[in-house]
């Protein structure tokens, strides 16, 4: 089997969880991957400082879509304070595949957009 394109990655890519619009929502953001111009947006519903629901929108490569899909399942239920603490390692570990330097931004785009929505910080996660 392929190292990068594992079955669960392809599964999340082909059937992404928590994709679409979320109306009404409390937080939103939109970010680009400069490598390919892909866009990823997020809608987040918050209750008591906690993410109760979220949806991603956009399209991208298998890595970026699968990363967003996998992360979405973890992000639901997290407090905003917890989201603020998330870093690049959290996402890469969660993804569980060897991500090369050039594809790193693909994997991190979803965390960038979520952190952007929650904290207003639009820097790439480190």
């Amino acid at each position: 089997m392929d190292d990068l394109y594992r079955d669960y990655i392809l599964d999340h890519y082909k059937q992404p969880r928590n994709f679409g619009e979320l109306e009404p929502h409390d937080l939103e953001a939109l970010e680009h991957n400069p490598l390919c111009g892909d866009e990823l947006g997020v809608h987040i519903r918050v209750c008591d400082e906690r993410i109760v629901d979220l949806r991603f929108q956009g399209h991208g490569c298998a890595i970026s879509q699968a990363a967003a899909s996998i992360a979405s399942e973890e992000l639901k239920g997290m407090t905003l304070a917890e989201v603020e603490q998330l870093d690049a390692d959290w996402m890469i570990d969660l993804l569980g595949i060897p991500v090369s330097a050039t594809r790193r931004k693909c994997a991190l785009l979803n965390l960038k957009v979520v952190r952007g929505a929650v904290t207003g910080d639009h820097a790439w996660p480190t």
Partner: peptide
């Protein structure tokens, strides 16, 4: 996605650009 195409063909030594 073109990036996945470029990544996958590179496994056979094929260098193409995506983006």
């Amino acid at each position: 996605h073109p990036h996945d195409v470029a990544e996958l063909v590179s496994r056979s030594g094929v260098c193409i650009r995506a983006g």
